[in-house]
């Protein structure tokens, strides 16, 4: 394994009963890279991320920072520096915005100063959250909930941030804002593995992409070498 790969996935397979959602995929994420997995609904993208986070049973080998995490319990994985910002945000609606952020820092809960510093960083990135920090998270708008989900995922200083459909249900303007924020997050040293249906916006920030179809990668490569029009017609069904 090359040492500059932060995440290395070999032969990943996810089955739901007799149905194979992910059929033996191989991919990697390099240090400080932004990598996107694109594809239509049901292609196996979300299952891939859930498997990496340890939430669903899977076969194959997942290596993160030279450590085999294929069999690691899901609640151990964020301690290693791998955090998933889940599909549909998954905020805790009956807790305040600030408590949601605090829970993101659960793995570093002994280090009060670091938590304070990280909350400050999140508020710099998303000022709206600071204005609403005492509000219950369930009362936030969709865009604010997405900001909260991303902010919460950043609270434990992940080395690799995985995001599942961050553009889902947001207005184009908010999508732009969220993706600008992802660029900023990446510049500060966090690698990003992104799963998206919105291929155009994802390609704008990605160094490399994988296009998933029926549980396999149909094509992959450097973003700049990929013809977007061709990709759209052939693989994304748009």
């Amino acid at each position: 394994m090359e040492t500059d790969h932060i995440l290395e996935v070999e032969n990943l397979t996810v089955k739901y009963g007799p149905i194979e959602a992910v059929k033996g995929t191989n991919f990697f994420v390099g240090n400080q890279e932004v990598v996107s997995i694109l594809g239509a609904n049901g292609a196996g993208k979300s299952s891939t991320l859930k498997a990496l986070a340890g939430l669903i049973p899977h076969e194959g080998r997942v290596t993160f920072l030279s450590k085999d995490i294929s069999r690691t319990e899901p609640y151990i994985i964020p301690y290693l520096g791998l955090t998933l910002c889940p599909e549909r945000r998954g905020i805790f609606p009956d807790l305040s915005v600030e408590d949601n952020l605090l829970l993101g820092a659960y793995t570093i809960r002994k280090n009060k100063n670091l938590i304070k510093e990280n909350i400050r960083k999140v508020y710099v990135l998303f000022q709206r959250l600071e204005e609403r920090k005492r509000q219950l998270a369930g009362t936030l708008s969709g865009g604010e909930q997405q900001m909260l989900a991303i902010g919460r995922a950043l609270m434990n200083d992940p080395k690799l941030l995985m995001l599942d459909e961050p553009s889902l249900g947001l207005s184009p303007k908010l999508v732009d804002f969220i993706f600008d924020s992802l660029k900023t997050i990446n510049k500060s040293g966090t690698a990003i593995l992104l799963v998206e249906q919105n291929a155009m916006i994802a390609m704008e920030i990605s160094t490399r992409i994988y296009v998933m179809q029926n549980g396999k990668f149909a094509i992959s490569g450097n973003t700049k070498d990929i013809d977007f029009q061709n990709l759209k017609m052939k693989y994304l069904g748009v």
């Binding site: 939430l55 609640y75 889940p86 408590d99 829970l103 659960y106």
Partner: peptide, 24 residues
């Protein structure tokens, strides 16, 4: 307390709580 909040998080969504590193 941190633990109390973590417990409420598990009550609200066990799977997401695991993603935070909480031992549900």
């Amino acid at each position: 307390t941190f633990q109390g909040k973590a417990m409420r998080a598990v009550a609200q969504n066990e799977e997401i709580a695991k993603l935070m590193g909480i031992n549900s």
